[in-house]
Structure formats: structure tokens, C-alpha cells
Design a protein around this nucleic acid. Structure first.
Lengths: 225, 225
DNA sequence: GCGAAGGTTAAGGGCAGGTTAACGGAGGGG
DNA sequence: CCCCTCCGTTAACCTGCCCTTAACCTTCGC
């Protein structure tokens, strides 16, 4: 079930939207002004943020910019009555992902919400890095055409690394994504990384799994010297 | 530089778009029918695909669906003259990410392309000073394009200096930000600054790390008096 | 020219990461 | 119902790198 935050000062419109979204199985938090919206966005994790441009206390553009500056990359869909090109350009410059002009069809809002959240959660059917390829559909991994076998945890580990590739993943983040809340003794990660290396880099060149001392690991074709 | 694929049968419109995109530093491949577009999309890697809905031989919707079935998750922006809600819904159902109705402003097309590609590439957060660049996402540092390796403390040191750049940071502040509460003997900072200089300024000009006698250090391209 | 602040160098100890093997539980097949 | 296999965890050990330290040198300010 998707979860979105709606920040909109027009109470009637907000009610209509919320009601419609609930019908589509989208859970909806609500704030009627920018400051309240910012607090909610900071405290909770949403799939998409729906921001009105004109808001009391803190306008949608500034709100979006603040979140981006804090490193929050939740997709933002800006709702506004103004169809001026300059407004749109400003919106995208502030880090907005999409822009919908009122009045709009609720159905269009819904599909755009799905499109934004889908892109974020990565509905990709394949993940790859150099000649390594993970096929999520038939649950296979190949490198240079030859198939690779991994244990469940090894799989999950590789998936997290692939999704972040070529970015790095900190040890803590890696462990949270693989094990969830109850973490095993820290040694476990070392062993699994070791096994992953043996499977992925064991008989291939160049090595793809790289250690970033004091931080975590990364998957990439070229070695960060 | 971004790279996009435009599939559009209206030659005049295509020329206009391509010309404008090139001005914005977006490289553009082009196909005038769906089948050719599919081939190009399969063979090359693009940041965004711009598909016309009505195409000879293979319409944009089917093209998009085919690519998605193959596991290709390149963002798709559908261009079309039809402003019917049902068409949009079909588009998003086929795996489209955005939908722009002709006639549209070229500037809006450009910002939407940037928004889609940014979302996909994960908007790398970077800090920089002159030709020195720290990529927080990949945990890499480059100067003049060549990569630089730093120890964890060296990294942290440089990060603090970069965030303050071109301002100065006092010794005390620097040490607090790097080590937290339990500080080592004061000599340690000297050694780490020395190593940082060796890595960052060792084989480059001009030196970026500057000493401010009696105060601390600063990072900047031009030497402070 | 003197003292203090900063720069340079090398050595050693500790710790993060790598490697290996053994234990134990879960799940499937006989 | 038992056995076997596979997999995750754990502990123990090894290795190499990084941080620290101390000692000495250079530069700067006065």
C-alpha cells in the first residue's frame, strides 16, 4: 500500500483528493500549511509528496527545496492553479519531479503518483553492473554469460549493492536492508561479503566488489584507487 | 552530458526538438518510426526516451511496453497531440513515466527530461572546490578527473573543509567535527593535514589547502592573503 | 635571533577487514 | 520419523592498513 503526504490549504479539495486516494488504496496523511507539512515529511517516510504551490506559512517550492537540502529525495508532485511556464521551471529547479495544473482529473493524479513511486522503488526487472546481470524475474544471476549461484542472503546483499551501484552503501545501511531490525553479530556481514566475493569475483576480472574502509562497500567496474 | 532517444514521425517537429536539445547540452539520437526506435533503444543506453504516441509501424505505447517486458527501465516521456484522459491512463499503464501534450514549450520538455534522468541516476550529491570534486554518493574524490584515495579521517577532514569552503575552519572546530568528543594529542591533526596535502595538492596546481596561522585551515583556489 | 606554530618523517600498536572452520537449525527426501 | 544437506551464524585467527605518537626540522612573527 502506498503512502503519500498531501499539503494543501483548500480544505474541500483536500477532502476530495484524500477520499479518492483511499479508494485507490493509497494511504494519505494531510497538512493544511507548509510548516506542518515539513514536520510530517521529516518524521515519516512517504512514497510521494503532493504539494500545493501556494501554502500558508511556507510555500510548496520552499518546502521542496528545504527537503532536498536535507537530503530527502522523496518524489514531489506539485499541484497548482498556475499554468505559467516560469512557475513550472522554478518548480523543477527546486527539485520537483512532476507538475500538475488544477483543475486536474483525479485519475491522472493517481497514475502519476504510481509512476513516481514505481520509479523510486525500482520496478526494474533486471539489475546490472558491467558484465554482471541479475534477472529479478526468473531469479538468475549471470556474469559473462555463465550463471552464478547465491544463497538467499547473498542474493539480497548483491541486490542492495546493485541498486546503489555505482554508489557506495554503508555497513549499517547494508545490514538494515538485508536483515531488517534484528541484526546478527557484526561478523556475519564479513562472512557474507567474503562469500559474495568468491561467487561474483572469484573467477572473473575485474573485481566488482570494492571495500571502502571505514564506511562500507560498493559495486563498480572500475576500481576506486 | 545527457543522452536521449527521440522517436517522432513529424520531421519538422523532430528537427526543432533536436536543435533545441543540443543547445541544452542534451545529445539526441533520432528515429522516425517505431521499429527503428525499438532497435536503437535495444542497442544503446539512453537517459530518457521521448516517444510519440502515433508512430508508423509500431506505436509509442507498444514500443514502451515491449521495452518494459524486456526489463528495460529507461524513463519514458510520451509526446502526443491527444489530450484524452484515457490515453494518458493507457500510457502510464504501459510503463510511461511522464506525458506531455502537444503543443508544448520546449523549455518544459527540457526540465522534465532533467527531472526524469535525475531521479533515475539518484541525483549524486557532490561537494567541490575548483577542480577538486567529492562525490558523496559514490564515496569518490577526483581532481582534474583523476581519482584520489583518502583514509577515513582524511575523508572527513576534507569534507568539513569543503563544506566551509572558501571559508576557514579553526583547528578546534576541525577537530571536534572529525573526532567528536575524545580528541587525540594535538599532533594528530598536523599529520592528517600533511597527508591530506600530499593527496590533494601533491601532484596538482595550484595548492588548495591553505594554512591560516594561529587559527586553522581553509580550502580555496586562490591563496588567502 | 629566539620562541612558538606549523611541517615532515618514521615506528609501533591497535583495529577494521579477510579468512577459515565448526556448530546448529531448517527443510526436504527417503 | 530420521537423516542428510544446505545455509546462517559464530568464534578465532590472521593480515595489512591506519591512527597515533614522538622526535626533529622549518617557517613565521616579533
Amino acid at each position: 500500500m502506498l503512502s503519500v503526504l498531501l499539503v494543501e490549504d483548500d480544505q474541500d479539495l483536500a477532502d476530495t483528493i484524500i477520499e479518492y486516494l483511499e479508494l485507490e488504496q493509497i494511504s494519505c496523511h494531510y497538512a493544511s500549511n507548509g510548516v506542518a507539512g515539513l514536520h510530517l515529511a521529516e518524521e515519516n517516510r512517504y512514497d510521494v509528496l503532493l504539494l500545493d504551490l501556494n501554502l500558508p506559512r511556507l510555500d510548496g517550492l520552499t518546502l521542496c527545496r528545504k527537503l532536498r537540502d536535507q537530503g530527502d529525495d522523496t518524489p514531489v508532485l506539485m499541484l497548482t492553479a498556475r499554468d505559467e511556464l516560469d512557475d513550472k521551471l522554478d518548480g523543477f529547479r527546486a527539485g520537483t519531479d512532476d507538475y500538475l495544473v488544477k483543475p486536474f482529473e483525479l485519475q491522472e493524479l493517481v497514475v502519476r503518483i504510481f509512476a513516481l513511486s514505481r520509479r523510486r522503488s525500482g520496478e526494474a526487472k533486471k539489475l546490472s553492473c558491467a558484465d554482471l546481470e541479475m534477472n529479478l524475474q526468473n531469479h538468475t544471476i549471470t556474469r559473462q554469460g555463465t550463471s552464478i549461484k547465491l544463497s538467499p542472503i547473498g542474493w539480497k546483499l548483491l541486490e542492495v549493492l546493485l541498486r546503489a551501484s555505482p554508489g557506495a552503501v554503508s555497513r549499517q545501511e547494508l545490514m538494515e536492508k538485508v536483515w531488517g531490525d534484528d541484526l546478527p553479530d557484526s561478523n556475519s556481514l564479513k562472512v557474507h561479503i567474503f562469500n559474495l566475493r568468491k561467487a561474483v569475483d572469484g573467477s572473473f576480472e575485474p573485481p566488482l566488489v570494492h571495500t571502502i574502509t571505514g564506511h562500507g562497500f560498493a559495486l563498480s567496474a572500475d576500481k576506486p584507487v
